[in-house]
């Protein structure tokens, strides 16, 4: 239903503006607080005009939280997770949609069911696998008796070990598998007319060629949308990076933010904390702004 009366229009505008104000208020507070010195920031109520210590606070936050290193880690982490998710889901959906193999439906539903098992639910087993990525194989060998057999025959005990804690692969790999992305890609592939695949077949292109020449270019808006969402999602991950990186060299910016938050009896320098927050939320914001046009197209419309 489309209503077009001046009063209704005005009402809509007011509601939207209110919503916008509510969404922007925290940002305004962060920005204002980041520009004051220690004394001003602790005045109640907080002044509504920006101060002049912005650059000092930024510099202080940068040094204290080692943000150079941490932001770099974050970019690597979020970028690799997002790229990995896009690549993996594009390929997984390709297999599910375009190939007929036994257990196809079962595999699709198995992927789908993992939607119900977010990382938080399976954090303990995931940590245990990250501690030794080959542990599942070791367990299989143990159960089937291979370990005992080899030990009896050769005297060597099979002990597979590949620790991933405190490493980029450890941070990234457990987060790469994605049911959402696979599903998004599957739905996209299903909108591509079957004749397109057949025409490519007649033109002599094999499956790989079809994937690279047709599906990837056609799914570009999709890819960008998925990458953007997943980058922001990975950037905001807290629990897993906190758990898997004890070495500060591999820490990421979001978990490192806690070093900037004043402790109970410490100096209440919220200005520095806010400056750090501002720096840390900048990269995903820039990405979303840059990708916005593609992002919306990828989510709502399919290219004709």
């Amino acid at each position: 239903m489309v209503e077009r009366t001046p009063i209704f229009n005005a009402l809509c505008q007011i509601v939207l503006l209110l919503g916008l104000a509510m969404a922007l208020l925290p940002f305004a507070i962060v920005i204002i607080a980041a520009t004051h010195d220690l004394r001003t920031v602790n005045i109640v109520p907080l002044p509504l005009t920006p101060g002049s210590h912005f650059l000092d606070n930024i510099a202080e936050a940068w040094v204290r939280a080692d943000l150079g290193r941490k932001l770099f880690n974050s970019v690597v982490f979020a970028g690799c997770v997002a790229a990995g998710k896009v690549i993996l889901s594009a390929m997984a959906a390709f297999a599910i949609v375009y190939f007929r193999f036994p257990g196809r439906a079962a595999i699709f539903w198995a992927i789908f069911i993992t939607l119900m098992l977010p990382l938080e639910v399976r954090i303990v087993p995931t940590y245990s696998v990250a501690a030794n990525a080959l542990q599942p194989f070791q367990a299989i060998f143990d159960v089937v008796g291979l370990t005992g057999l080899v030990e009896r025959l050769t005297g060597y005990r099979i002990a597979l070990e590949w620790p991933l804690l405190n490493s980029y692969p450890g941070l990234i790999l457990p987060l790469v598998a994605t049911a959402t992305g696979t599903f998004l890609y599957r739905q996209f592939y299903l909108t591509i007319p079957e004749e397109l695949a057949e025409a490519a077949k007649m033109d002599g292109s094999g499956p790989l060629r079809f994937f690279l020449d047709m599906l990837l270019p056609l799914s570009r808006p999709n890819m960008i949308a998925l990458f953007t969402i997943m980058f922001v999602w990975a950037w905001n991950q807290y629990l897993w990076p906190l758990l898997v990186t004890t070495d500060p060299n591999f820490g990421i910016a979001v978990t490192e933010l806690k070093t900037l938050i004043p402790s109970e009896f410490g100096l209440p320098d919220w200005n520095v904390a806010m400056a750090g927050t501002l720096l840390i939320m900048l990269p995903p914001l820039v990405l979303v702004i840059l990708m916005q046009r593609w992002f919306v197209r990828g989510l709502i419309a399919s290219e004709k």
Partner: peptide, 19 residues
């Protein structure tokens, strides 16, 4: 395989590559 049969096909909805 289709490509080895020496046939070319024109489809009802043309199936042009849109990109």
């Amino acid at each position: 395989e289709p490509r080895r049969r020496g046939c070319a096909m024109v489809f009802q909805n043309y199936a042009l590559y849109p990109h």
